[in-house]
Computed example of a mutant assay.
Amino acid sequence: MSKAALSQLSENDIRMLVRHPDNEMRAMAAQRLCRTVRGAELSEGEREIAGELLTYMAKDAAAIVRRALAVTLKNSPKLPHDVAVMLAKDIDSIAVPVLNFSPVFNDDDLIEVLRSKAAAKVAAIARRPSVSGGLVNEIIRFGDSKAVAVLAANDGADISPDQAGEMLARYRSNDLIAEAFIRRRDLPTAIIERLITHISEEAALVLTRKHAVPVDIAIDLANRSRERATIDLIDQSFRTRDLALFVARLKDEGRLTPTLILRAAGCARMRFVEHGLAALAGIRVSKAALMVHDAGPFGLKALCARAGLTDAQAKFVHASAVIFRDLEMSGISYDAEYFQEMMILRVLTLPLKLSDADQIYFLEKLDGLGEGDIFNEGWG
């Protein structure tokens, strides 16, 4: 490799990736190298060596290193095909981002994954920006109801009326499938006709408003209504300077969740954690701050329990507070972005169980540092 390429890929990062015994340091080096591969113009020879490095990352024993590779290059056409196939066979938290987004897969690659019937992987393929009719058949064949609902709602999925009919017939008692179809932007008339016998009054009214179904049909469907539960994915918008008022609004709207507290803690947003736990527990912020930072694990455990967090979430918040304090007292002058990067890297290597969704969230936060931070509004 040329000296220019070595400067692009960084000899120090390569050395750290290959030799460093610490998982989090290898993950940090892996992410920097992947960012360089993603953004650099490399010659054919340089791409070959970069491919060897990526293959090396994909074989690392530490999941956090492989996850850093998957998250950072999930959208990139520069991810080598053979490396993408390796990642697709990995554990869900590594395979899902790549299966969801990577443009380097062909249908045969994806069909092989679908045949494994791994629920999270099937759902990831169903959510891809473009899903061919052939893949639709295989998702219906090998997927569960959740994957089929994801497919039904995906405007990028090429679903024929016959395939829609099969999906609705197979999951006749599952309201989510019909509701997912209704959420599509452009619903063909043939699919609307198949939906009519499957939906409730509530869904029929949505169908009427969104896809111009005659009102008399919606009224007729009222006789077939039944109870359902709807889970809303809330767009958490954290743009505010007035933290106390903002947290109060989140609580009033039911958006101040334990998951949000946990993720804020891992991102070094301890003022938000203090205000959030205080609001959920119904105590003063000053008291919550003391319990988060000064009262030891038992005081914080009691606070988290009162706020509705699980024991596992409380342990994570406590560990995050300890890491935050250690970084603050290290004597090193961190800028805000590097402080957060170090914080996230350390919480990712804690010997605590994090959900796949939380692990991916923190890795994507790492990848997005410097490109805007939804927590970075002076809440540190």
Rank of each mutant, 00 (worst) to 15 (best):
M1G: 12
S2T: 15
I14Y: 11
R15S: 02
R15T: 06
M16G: 00
V18G: 00
D22G: 06
E24S: 13
A29D: 04
A30N: 01
L33H: 09
R35A: 10
V37L: 12
V37M: 13
R38P: 00
E41D: 12
A61M: 09
A68P: 04
A68W: 11
A70R: 05
V71P: 05
L79I: 11
P80N: 04
P80L: 05
P80D: 06
A84P: 02
L87S: 10
D90P: 01
A95K: 07
P97A: 01
V98K: 10
L99E: 10
F101N: 06
P103L: 10
F105K: 09
L110R: 01
L110M: 06
E112M: 07
V113T: 04
A119E: 07
A120W: 04
K121M: 12
R127Q: 06
R127T: 06
P129N: 07
S130P: 01
G133K: 03
L135E: 03
I139R: 02
D144C: 08
V150M: 13
A152R: 00
A152S: 03
S160P: 07
P161C: 05
A169Y: 05
S173Q: 08
N174W: 14
P188Q: 07
I192P: 00
E193K: 12
E201Q: 15
A203C: 10
T208M: 10
H211M: 05
P214D: 07
D220M: 08
S225G: 13
Q236L: 12
S237H: 08
S237V: 06
D242R: 10
L243F: 06
A244V: 10
A248W: 14
A248V: 11
R249D: 14
L250G: 14
L250M: 15
D252E: 13
E253G: 03
G254C: 12
R255P: 02
I261T: 08
R263C: 02
V273Y: 04
A278Y: 08
G282A: 11
I283S: 02
R284H: 13
K287H: 09
A288Q: 02
L290Y: 13
L290M: 14
G296D: 04
P297C: 03
P297M: 03
K301H: 13
A302C: 07
R306V: 04
G308I: 02
G308K: 05
T310E: 04
D311A: 09
S320G: 08
V322Y: 14
I323W: 01
L327N: 10
S330Q: 01
S330H: 04
G331D: 00
D335T: 02
Y338R: 11
Y338T: 08
P351E: 15
L354R: 09
D356L: 12
A357T: 14
D358V: 12
D367C: 10
G370F: 06
F375T: 01
F375R: 01
G380N: 13
